[in-house]
Design a protein around this nucleic acid. Sequence first.
DNA 1: TTAATATAGTGTCGCTGTGACACATTCATA
DNA 2: TATGAATGTGTCACAGCGACACTATATTAA
Lengths: 232, 232
Amino acid sequence: MTNTYDINEFKNPLFTVDSVLFTVKDDALKVLMVKRANEPFIGSWGLPGGFVDVDSDTTTDVTALRKLEEKTSVAPQYLEQLQAFSGIDRDPRGFSVTLVYFALIAAQEVSSHIETIDDVQWIDIDKIDSLSIAFDHKIIIEQAKERLQQKALYSMVPVYCLPEYFTVGQLKSVIETIIGKTIQRKSLIRRIESADMFETIDEKVKSGGRLAQQYKVKEGVDIVNFERNLST
Amino acid sequence: MTNTYDINEFKNPLFTVDSVLFTVKDDALKVLMVKRANEPFIGSWGLPGGFVDVDSDTTTDVTALRKLEEKTSVAPQYLEQLQAFSGIDRDPRGFSVTLVYFALIAAQEVSSHIETIDDVQWIDIDKIDSLSIAFDHKIIIEQAKERLQQKALYSMVPVYCLPEYFTVGQLKSVIETIIGKTIQRKSLIRRIESADMFETIDEKVKSGGRLAQQYKVKEGVDIVNFERNLST
DNA sequence: TTAATATAGTGTCGCTGTGACACATTCATA
DNA sequence: TATGAATGTGTCACAGCGACACTATATTAA
């Protein structure tokens, strides 16, 4: 026998993968939540996620993507690991670990699909406190939000809440919604130009005033990190 | 078994906790490595770590600390989660996940203990490539190093590689070793003063020239993050 | 047609924090 | 007492963000 290792030699912790999928919609930061159909916490809202399928998932990234696609039918535009949360008390079934991913998507990518089902919803981040949330997911969402806010100050990640083509005004609005304060349009334009990760689109778009320049993320570029934060 | 939850209901991934414990010693960045006494990768160097003891560990943080203390007999001065690494191929026993912690300690806190055993060693980060390293730990160490270098540019974490009392010169040297380039003494002093996380010690210490002011980290303060990076 | 309004985009000055570097200070040692 | 070595200070230049006035161009209403 090639495998001399016995899986039952010790008690393995319960291991799951969850995702905090954010979007900005109607000028509010939203999180994708799922109404739990099973125990524990049946009926409460929880983060989309579940167990690794060790026969088909090659990494936990694949697990996160698979679980998100089950709920939204599309892949998020941005995905990174947030943090693992563990503890003897966080799941009534025993010691558990959940590896949490942090994801972003444009609202219009999923909205049409979501509107047809009522157990998957965009929940306004400010309304989380008033809902019944499963496990320690309330804390997890709070941490993910802080990470997103921090990233919005020194990187361009917020573009992943926007469709392929977007304007400076749209990006400004998304960033402001995320960090909860206004920023200087001029500062944003300076960053867009110096980041060298966007290309301009010839066709401009109307926006209630002067036609707006459209941008898109260049193919194959990574997120640029700036050496300074925007004002705190 | 008292556990009513059946661990074999589905195939759970193999879950371990490992730590990348850094220090700066002899003007070089070092990682604590352990010579593996068991399969797989017996005889290779690996990161200190192991399985969660679900009966005594309340969180994975406790697991990481426990495993590090087994090897060094002391707790590190700084500990944070780095990232989880997973995959179907990284462990010959099957799909596995390792939650990796990132830790810092002053070399003198552990050196006396380590020198008495030969299966636990500080390995120079530049010599990792020439050694036989278990699993994907070479990649993990590289990622941890990048995180440490990044943090050294916008925070004061490198102080946790120093003893309780330290001088500006010592901190400057540690930072330079970590990031691999020189920094301005003046810039460091400005940061020390503005961070408000250190207190001065009356007693000064000789250092080959003028006596040097000693500092220590204030009780109960958190790491301060600056809004700008040092020069790249 | 013209004026008002709204949004897009530019020009530029001030502020802050880092880089650079000269200079001053205070040790040990010859 | 002079020299070298490390510590510590003063200060100017530079880059990037904040602030804000100003220009440009669209829609809409008079």
